[in-house]
Simulated assay, not measured.
Amino acid sequence: MTNKLRSEKLEIERIIFIGRTYKEYLNMFDLSLPELERKKILDCPAGACSFSAIGRQKGLNIEACDIAYYFNRVDLYEKGKEDIQHTIEKMKNSKDNYNWNYFKNIEDLKYQRQQAL
């Protein structure tokens, strides 16, 4: 591996608490609301994703679990905010390694992660 590639590699040296939005889950797994209705869904590990919360608002039968849920909501929210910022800062050095078809750019990615949190 060349020095240039090494410098562009995304390196996050800690476990991060971030997540995806409901819409991102649907797109990622090519799902639709009608496909999910009348099913029992387990989101594990759910992390800081909004899939379960939004899905429940839409009448879906979803349970979310994650070992991180041992911690209280306020602490997880603060960790999520810090981890999003940390990850975005790290990604600035490796942004050219990503396909930006779903997210417009790093700022759009950051916004979507904040919405999920």
Rank of each mutant, 00 (worst) to 15 (best):
S52N: 06
N27V: 14
F71D: 12
Y98C: 08
L42N: 00
M28N: 04
P45M: 05
N72S: 12
F29W: 10
D75V: 15
F51I: 07
H86T: 10
E24Y: 10
W100S: 08
F29L: 13
S50D: 09
L31D: 03
Y25G: 00
N72M: 10
W100C: 07
I106D: 00
K23V: 08
H86A: 03
D96L: 05
D83N: 13
C65R: 07
K23R: 11
K104E: 13
K81G: 00
K23P: 00
S50W: 02
V74D: 11
E78G: 01
T21P: 10
I84N: 00
L36E: 02
H86P: 01
L60P: 07
C49Q: 01
L42V: 14
N101G: 10
N72V: 09
N99L: 15
K90T: 09
Y77C: 06
A53I: 15
C65F: 09
N105V: 10
K39H: 11
K92I: 11
A48S: 04
A46P: 01
C65H: 01
W100Y: 06
F71E: 13
N93T: 14
F103L: 06
R56K: 14
E78Q: 14
T87K: 02
L60K: 06
E78W: 12
K23H: 07
Q57D: 08
Y25S: 03
A48C: 01
T87M: 12
L42P: 01
P34L: 04
W100G: 09
Y69W: 07
S52D: 05
Y69Q: 05
R20V: 08
D96T: 13
I41W: 03
W100N: 06
Y102C: 09
I106E: 05
N27P: 00
E107W: 11
H86L: 14
C44A: 14
L33F: 05
A68P: 00
D96C: 03
A64F: 02
I106M: 05
D43A: 06
I88A: 04
N93H: 14
P45N: 00
K23G: 03
R38N: 15
D30V: 10
D30N: 14
M28W: 08
N99M: 13
E82I: 11
N99Q: 12
F71N: 10
S52H: 08
E37L: 09
E24I: 10
E35D: 11
I84D: 00
T21R: 06
I54Y: 00
F71S: 11
S94T: 11
K81F: 08
C65V: 13
Y69N: 03
E37G: 00
K104S: 12
F29T: 02
D75Q: 13
R56Q: 11
G59Q: 05
A53S: 11
F71V: 12
L31R: 01
F103E: 07
Q57E: 12
D75F: 15
I67K: 07
N61D: 15
I67T: 09
K58R: 13
D30K: 13
I67E: 04
Y69T: 08
K40S: 15
E35F: 08
D43R: 02
L36D: 01
T87H: 01
C65K: 06
A68I: 08
